[in-house]
Amino acid sequence: MNLLRRNLPGALVVGIPVLWILVFMLLPYGIIVTYSFWLKKYPTFLPAFQFGNYVTLFTDPQYLRVFLRTLKISLLVSAASFLLAYPFAYYLVFRCRSQALRTWLYMAVIAPLWVSYLLRAYIWKTILGTEGVLNSFLMWLRIIDEPSSLFLYNQFSMVVTLTYIFIPFMVMPIYTALEKIPVNLTEASADLGMSPWRSFWHVTLPLSLPGVAAGFTLTFCLSFGDFIAPFLVGGPDGNLVANVIATQFGAALNWPLGSALAIVMLIVVLSIVSVSDRLERKGLTGGT
């Protein structure tokens, strides 16, 4: 009794968050896992323990197709974010002489995070549309004679929009990783006879890999679970896994199948996170 009273504050400090996680994170997952074994039966579904839903996912080609498409879009978004974010972060950390300009540019990339996701996606609709800003601009430049419909409602516009929306999550970790690299390491590399390009290749890039891995994980997982971009800027061939899950829980009223799909997706995301986590830790300890 005494012991409990003495430890009560401590028990609360630890206990409440643990309880919170149990109730609000693990419990929903538990429910989803349970549903994923149930049976769809008009009008709703019946409790059961069977793997039919998972079998459907792996045998009906439509799910594999959507899965591969989602994978492709997420990888493209991550790659595009990386190609844009890395040189940008590199410039900020190593080349930008003015502290004020650096802060300003960094904020310019991060600030959109405070703007609603929907609004940001919507902006791209007005840029890429047939009568949008991009088309007007290209016509003004006389590069094209009539508006092109190639920019919007396809996978290109989804990649562009998702890249724009998620690129802060690539810039931030890379910036942090680059900032942590002591300047004297690149100096040492130059001192030991390496040209700037080779120094970058042998020293800066490997040492920033943990940041790159974190950025890839974040942008990949965020795009992988996205369902708004397909809705706003995607075309007829833009359905992603999250849209299919939404359909199964909504229009199709097939929660068991939707749950099974959600579980498969969760497993994919978790394995990517753990791989990248291992990569990051390897980077930090220098690989031992």
Binding site: K40, Y42, D60, Q62, Y63, R65, V66, P236, D237, N239, N243, V244, T247, A251, A252, L253, N254
Partner: peptide, 18 residues
């Protein structure tokens, strides 16, 4: 659509998945 409901929605979903 009764129990045909699933067949209809599934067919439409498959079109979108393509």
């Amino acid at each position: 659509l009764g129990d045909r409901f699933e067949t209809y929605t599934n067919a439409w979903n498959a079109v979108k998945a393509q």
